[in-house]
């Protein structure tokens, strides 16, 4: 089966620092896959390479078997490579509903329309509303995002990403900085994602990873250390060393 997302020899160096070193990676359709690794392992750089925010020094990115390495970030987003941000990145002064409506509008390719009022495209607003209801955000729809608690903002972040109907969804630390009681809602939302959607979760909270992922790739210093099922990863001595052995001399 063609992977939903594949990288071949993906490499990127900043001077002497190599943040991605020949990464071969495959994300199966419908996958619940986690990318883990210690701080500075290159997880976020990998996301940036996949979305196009960062250009690779070498290697390729394939979406459903088609090479997208040369496409700009916006074009990749339109093809279905969608990310959420580690640090919440929303339109803070706009309402929750408007945040999601902007996303829905772009997905329908209607964001460049200059004549007809946005309000007359009611179907787009309704679609955004449905997305909010799904994540339990309807009560906050009319509030500016900046007035929401951080955990709720993380959910809006997810709603915006889902509004793009992704093929491949990259969740960069979806529950980072969220208090434990609210993190549960985010986990539940991720668990409730459509089964056919390929999801890659970038996390270093291992508890969350073992709950959500059925497959795990471990990244260390820009290289793939290993890939396997959660059980295999948990038992691998090298992973234990990286995570539990602390800093190596």
């Amino acid at each position: 089966m063609t992977p939903a997302l594949e990288t071949i020899g993906l490499t990127r160096a900043f001077g002497a620092v190599t943040v991605a070193d020949g990464i071969d990676f495959r994300l199966a359709p419908g996958a619940r896959h986690a990318l883990i690794g210690p701080n500075g392992a290159g997880k976020t750089s990998f996301v940036n390479l996949v979305t196009g925010a960062l250009a690779p020094s070498a290697g390729r990115v394939l979406l459903d078997g088609a090479d997208v390495t040369r496409l700009a970030p916006a074009a990749r987003a339109r093809r279905g490579i969608v990310r959420s941000f580690q640090i919440t990145s929303l339109f803070r002064n706009l309402t929750v509903l408007e945040n999601v409506t902007l996303a829905v509008t772009e997905r329908h390719g209607a964001g460049g329309g200059m004549i007809r009022p946005a309000g007359k495209r009611r179907a787009l607003i309704e679609e955004a509303w449905a997305g909010l209801e799904q994540l339990g955000l309807a009560d906050e729809a009319a509030r500016p995002v900046r007035t929401l608690a951080y955990g709720r903002q993380r959910l809006v972040e997810l709603a915006v990403a889902l509004a793009l109907r992704p093929r491949v969804l990259l969740l960069d630390e979806p529950a980072a900085g969220v208090p434990a009681e609210e993190a549960g809602r985010i986990v539940a939302a991720v668990e409730g994602l459509p089964a056919e959607l390929a999801v890659l979760i970038i996390e270093h909270d291992l508890e969350l990873v073992f709950r959500l992922a059925r497959r795990i790739t471990v990244l260390v210093a820009g290289r793939v250390l290993m890939e396997g099922s959660p059980a295999e990863v948990a038992e691998d001595p090298r992973v234990r060393e990286v995570y539990l052995g602390g800093r190596r001399a």
Partner: peptide
């Protein structure tokens, strides 16, 4: 228009 709303979106957060 949707164009105008997207301008506001870019003002707020162009990367997004």
């Amino acid at each position: 228009s949707p164009f105008g709303r997207s301008l506001v979106g870019m003002r707020e957060n162009a990367a997004r």
